[in-house]
Computed example of a mutant assay.
Amino acid sequence: MPESTLPGGFVNAVVRIGDTVRRPASGRTGFVSDLLTLFASRGWSGAPRWLGVDEQGREVLGYLDGQVAWEPRRPAAVSSDDSLLAVARLVREFHDLTAGTAAAGDREVVCHNDLSPKNTVYRPVDGQLRPVAFIDWDLAAPGDRIHDVAHVCWQYLRLGPEVVDVAEAARRMRLVADGYGPVDRGALVRTVLWWQDRCARGIETAADAGDASMIRLRAAGVVGEVWEAHRWVSAHRGALERALR
């Protein structure tokens, strides 16, 4: 069957063949296959199905129909409070599914580690686009619940200099925490800053080591954008933390 390149992939070339998605295998392929198989065995529909490896050595995943918000301009429904609550609840679902499993090891849960609208599938629910699944699990690893919750706050709220209303961003950050459930709110803003620092330094280190995809990200100005976001969160840390109390 013919291959069609799926949009939005900046790091990996991802193609669709029929009802399957093919993506390059990596050192994480074994972990990802076990994780997606676990989700399928529990009947959770919030992730692609693992279907094996093809003759070219690529991972084969089930295709999830819907809209992925990979473009900077997104439909208003993607950014609505209802969608944000639904994202937080989806995260809580897969965290609870992995808590206490071999996949989580000695950590609280398995974290996705790259949650953002560009890795979220949206479908119409009662006439409005709502998140129904997450894709791109290749960075998934054992971690703590707050890591994914903080990443959601950073990416879905676009915490950074483009935020016009700090009070509104703080309110929506509280909404994420409310939607997820019990989480260490006192550490949430600190963990957003940790993610931003880790991301910027990670791209720089990998690019210096010759990683082609990270070289492209750095050339596109991503490192500078992340540091700008880090400075913005640092400057407004007090207001964000007060809203979470």
Rank of each mutant, 00 (worst) to 15 (best):
L51K: 10
L51Q: 11
L51C: 12
G52M: 06
G52C: 07
V53W: 14
V53T: 15
V53E: 13
D54H: 08
D54K: 08
D54G: 10
E55N: 04
E55C: 03
Q56V: 10
Q56S: 14
G57H: 08
G57K: 08
G57P: 00
G57N: 07
R58C: 08
R58W: 08
E59R: 02
E59V: 03
E59A: 10
V60S: 12
V60F: 12
V60P: 05
L61T: 10
L61M: 12
L61K: 12
L61P: 08
G62E: 09
G62M: 09
Y63K: 03
Y63A: 05
Y63Q: 03
Y63M: 05
L64F: 04
L64E: 03
L64P: 02
L64T: 03
D65I: 01
G66C: 03
G66M: 03
G66V: 01
G66I: 02
Q67C: 10
Q67V: 12
Q67Y: 14
Q67L: 15
V68W: 01
V68G: 04
V68P: 02
A69H: 10
A69G: 14
A69M: 13
A69Y: 07
W70M: 04
W70H: 14
W70T: 04
E71A: 15
E71P: 01
E71R: 14
P72Q: 14
P72K: 13
P72L: 14
P72V: 11
R73C: 04
R73K: 11
R73T: 10
R73P: 00
R74Q: 15
R74S: 09
R74E: 09
R74A: 10
P75M: 04
P75K: 00
P75L: 07
P75N: 04
P75I: 01
A76S: 15
A77E: 15
A77T: 08
A77H: 07
A77M: 08
A77L: 10
V78K: 00
V78S: 00
V78Q: 00
V78C: 01
V78E: 00
V78D: 00
S79Q: 15
S79R: 15
S79H: 15
S79G: 15
S80T: 01
S80V: 01
S80Y: 02
S80C: 05
D81M: 08
D81A: 14
D81K: 06
D82S: 02
D82L: 00
D82F: 00
L84N: 01
L84R: 02
L85H: 07
